[in-house]
Nucleic acid binder design. Structure first.
Length: 155
DNA sequence: GCCAACGTTGGC
DNA sequence: GCCAACGTTGGC
């Protein structure tokens, strides 16, 4: 099993929203590095659900990949802000996965706290100017985050 | 709201 | 293929 971190602005889509809807297609990713990470996900992988542009910014819970990468339908929708005229049905440029909630953290594990965890110093998340919205997380980073959040999860 | 960092676009 | 201009991200 692999671990990941997904960024979402809670004003747009929060962890509570994920709990409410049950399963969510993670569409709208339009960055190649993030897309490649989406494509590397496998069903059953676990994701830290990160609230960006929030007070505080941080991890709100854990989500599970319930469907591996498939074409993001918004790229074909001219009415969508995520429409990509250069993409084609034959060779879709953008992908998405489906995710479902696993456990909400009792409180948001803030970016500030993450920065204080040993394994997180090397994460793209804590680098200056980091904007990557889908990134890999090491097993050490994942377990440190769970521990700091006070969450026990059977893997 | 500010602004640094970064990715993308497009003229050449 | 370079690079300036521009748009977006996201912490603060």
């Amino acid at each position: 099993m692999a671990f990941w971190l997904l960024k979402s602005e809670p004003d747009v889509f929060s962890y509570a929203d994920l709990v409410r809807v049950g399963v969510e297609p993670w569409n709208g990713v339009r960055n190649y590095q993030a897309r490649n990470n989406l494509r590397a996900m496998r069903e059953g992988d676990l994701c830290l659900f990160y609230h960006s542009n929030a007070k505080p910014a941080g991890v709100a819970g854990v989500a599970r990949v319930v469907k591996a990468a498939y074409p993001d339908d918004l790229q074909f929708d001219p009415a969508s802000p995520y429409f990509d005229p250069k993409s084609s049905q034959d060779n879709p440029r953008w992908s998405m996965v489906d995710v479902a909630p696993v456990v909400a953290f009792p409180a948001v594990l803030s970016l500030d706290t993450l920065r204080g965890l040993p394994a997180w110093t090397s994460s793209p998340l804590t680098q200056k100017g980091a904007r990557l919205s889908v990134m890999p997380v090491t097993p050490e980073q994942f377990s440190e985050a769970l521990q700091a959040a006070g969450v026990i999860l059977e893997l």
